[in-house]
Design a protein around this nucleic acid. Sequence first.
DNA 1: GTTGCCATGTAAATGGTTACATGATTGG
DNA 2: CCAATCATGTAACCATTTACATGGCAAC
Lengths: 193, 193
Amino acid sequence: MPAPAPLTQTARIVLGLIAEGHATGYAIKAEVERSTKRYWGASIGGIYPELRRLTDAGLITVRDDPRGDSPRHNYELTEAGAAALRRWLTDCENPTLEMRDESLLRLRFANVLTRAERSEVLATKRRLHQERAAEIEAQLSRDEFDDRFHRLTAEYAHELHRWAISWCERQAVELTADGALAPVSEPDAATPG
Amino acid sequence: MPAPAPLTQTARIVLGLIAEGHATGYAIKAEVERSTKRYWGASIGGIYPELRRLTDAGLITVRDDPRGDSPRHNYELTEAGAAALRRWLTDCENPTLEMRDESLLRLRFANVLTRAERSEVLATKRRLHQERAAEIEAQLSRDEFDDRFHRLTAEYAHELHRWAISWCERQAVELTADGALAPVSEPDAATPG
DNA sequence: GTTGCCATGTAAATGGTTACATGATTGG
DNA sequence: CCAATCATGTAACCATTTACATGGCAAC
């Protein structure tokens, strides 16, 4: 048999969430929004076509389950689908690990800013992590995470944001110390025309 | 005048790196590979067209600076470019913060795995963070980061990976305790056909 | 009866990555 | 002379996002 094509990014999460019991495209999207988008996103426009592809590939099956007049499709893993999921979970040697952290990028270029602006960049970063942490805290306190590993990843994200907040606070102290003890020369930007 | 289009992702890093003195497309790409890709990626195929667009938009200027027969373009910020950079650095209210962490996604679905496999998923995640941390350590010990804020972001990434390593180690203990104290029922997957 | 949610799906546009294609310079 | 690095650029492909389009059902 031909080597099975590696699962696309969207296929990875669709397969996993179907295994968790999220049976419709809509439910998968809702679950992504509620929790996985923190570490693995997918958009509605990609999910429906992927469901079709996975069905054609024999990794999932559909059962029609209309609500009155409106169509509804319930998806389940086939044996091949369960095997593909397990293969990905166990055979993946170099998992993807990418970040798009605009607040860090801005901090990197902060040498063109004034001291006050630098502090603001840092404060914005801190606020962002606080918001994200608060969301997760609310979900945890509502006991939204039934599954052990599901909860574990939420706690990971929560602790990660808490760590980032404390990092920002430590750096804020250093930036302030700058002003008090060792004034740096202001960049051109400090004196606009 | 019309509201200036917000900078594309590639434009943000190109503008910032030109401000830092990376004058050619090649140099920008090299710097991305060496350091920024840890929090903000860009690919060579996107950089050259972006340099063209930014030139057309009047945010940067080119000076031809051939090396012998082969062409070389030196880019510099115009005043408008410096202003656009500053505007992005200071006006950005909701900075992008996205992650693609496949190791976390795998951990989330780990309930379909055996105990041994779960430990392996966690160990793979730990190894990944160790590799990334080691890279940054090597760069820091070689004193590769001249600029203060440039070094700061490298240290951020380094500490972040160290935090993740310690998280993995703590969880590994819990997973092991599972086996010793409170054996969980093995999933179907433990007894393949 | 109307608002909001459940539910499905498509089409166009965007944006980015990969591969390709080329060639000069530098150092061993 | 050969390999590595510097340097530029294009084209095809891919994947994802956004907007559009539709309509039933449930609750107030």
